[in-house]
Every structure is written in structure tokens, then in C-alpha cells.
């Protein structure tokens, strides 16, 4: 893939994520940041897939990257990180995979259905693991003095 196509893809990821942020009813002033989170995730995914040749590792790295990004944005904007996270992972989540799993099952193509299902499961596991890894980083890295939810208590 050329750099120019990659740039177009990242732009599409930013716009697409911003559009889904509207569907998830994110406050208007945060939509741009949500889009950027999605763009960061897709950029890491593309670069990692190009150099490592593995979609799973690339998904894991991208999930870690965008979860870190959404935590940093959460500190910056004083908003819960889930706002950026849910929108940002939209480019990575295997929505198509789970749909194809059900679709091939209906068509009676069992082998393809199982292959798609396992693939979906692995990608989802990678995303979930990536998020958990990023969330286990210490709060102080992101500028919180104490744990965010109990601060000021």
C-alpha cells in the first residue's frame, strides 16, 4: 500500500469515527477528538500490519495506542475516557466479522462461518486485551494525582 492510500484511509477513519460519535450522541465539542482517536488507532493498525504482517498483533497494538490516547484526552478534556474509547475502537471492532459469521451460517456455508467466527473472536480478544493493558498503566502517567474517580473525596 502506498503512503498516499494510507493517508486517505486514515482520513476516512477520522471522518467515519466522527460520524459514529454523532450516532453515539457524544457532545459536539468532543466529536473532533473522538475522530482523532479513531484515526490514531487506524494509523497504528496500518503501520503495524505493514511491518509485522499480522492482523492480530496490529489490532493489539492499535487498541493499546488508542486506549492510551483516549485516557490522555480524558485528562485533557476532563471527561470520562469511555467517551473517546467507545468511538475510537469503532474502526477496529469486527462488526463485519460477526455479521459474516451469521450470514454464512444462514447460507449453510459452515466452514466459512466458523472461520469468520474464530477470526472475530480473536480480534475482539486482542482489542479487549489491549484496552485492559492500557487501563492498567498508572494514573500518574496521565497527569492524575490520585485515582480519578475518587479524587476530591
Amino acid at each position: 500500500m502506498t503512503v498516499r492510500m494510507g493517508a486517505f484511509q486514515v482520513a476516512a477513519a477520522v471522518i467515519g469515527t466522527a460520524a459514529f460519535a454523532v450516532l453515539f450522541d457524544v457532545p459536539p465539542k468532543r466529536i473532533l477528538f473522538c475522530g482523532l482517536t479513531g484515526g490514531v488507532g487506524w494509523l497504528i493498525y496500518l503501520v503495524a500490519r505493514h511491518y509485522l504482517q499480522s492482523a492480530y498483533t496490529a489490532t493489539l497494538l492499535a487498541a493499546i495506542g488508542l486506549a492510551v490516547c483516549s485516557r490522555a484526552l480524558a485528562t485533557l478534556c476532563k471527561a470520562p475516557s469511555i467517551v473517546f474509547l467507545i468511538c475510537g475502537i469503532f474502526t477496529l471492532v469486527p462488526g463485519a466479522g460477526i455479521y459474516y459469521t451469521a450470514y454464512y451460517m444462514l447460507l449453510g456455508k459452515n466452514a466459512q462461518s466458523v472461520a469468520n467466527g474464530l477470526d472475530t473472536l480473536k480480534i475482539t480478544l486482542m482489542i479487549a486485551l489491549g484496552i485492559i493493558i492500557a487501563y492498567s498503566l498508572p494514573h500518574s502517567l496521565f497527569g492524575w494525582k490520585k485515582s480519578p474517580r475518587t479524587s476530591g473525596k
Binding site: F20, Y99, L121, I127, I132
Partner: peptide, 22 residues
């Protein structure tokens, strides 16, 4: 696949696996 993407349950699937891992 593009046109049904807004309806696909990708995010809830990911949330569910995350809940399992937690």
C-alpha cells in the same frame, strides 16, 4: 457491509469480551 455497518454489534461484542476478561 458498509451500509449495515452502523447497525453491527461490534462495540457490544468488544465490551462483552472486555467484561469477561474483567
Amino acid at each position: 457491509i458498509g451500509s449495515i455497518f452502523p447497525m453491527t454489534p461490534g462495540v457490544s461484542l468488544t465490551n462483552s469480551i472486555r467484561n469477561f476478561l474483567e
